[in-house]
């Protein structure tokens, strides 16, 4: 069986299957689903994690990598 022969036979039938039918078929074959929650749009007001730079500048350690504070 060639890939093209397979695709022709498979999609002739698979295209008739609705997404809901497919979910039901997969569930019958042991695949588990859960209800899908719509994701909230990205919230630009979320506070970013604070970048603590104080310790860097107060450090007496000359070898401290100051680029970390950038």
């Amino acid at each position: 069986m060639t890939v093209d022969e397979f695709k022709k036979e498979f999609f002739e039938n698979f295209n008739k299957v609705s997404p809901e039918q497919l979910v039901a078929e997969l569930e019958a074959n042991g695949v588990e689903f859960e209800e899908y929650e719509e994701e909230l749009p990205f919230n630009i007001n979320i506070n970013p994690l604070p970048i603590i730079v104080e310790d860097v500048y107060n450090s007496a350690d000359e070898s401290y990598d100051y680029t970390l504070a950038a």
Binding site: V17, P19, E20, L22, V23, V31, E32, F33, E34, E35, Y36
Partner: peptide, 13 residues
């Protein structure tokens, strides 16, 4: 096709 069935998503694999 599962992307279209928006009300459910895979729980495991």
């Amino acid at each position: 096709k599962l992307k279209i069935a928006k009300k459910k998503r895979l729980k495991n694999d």
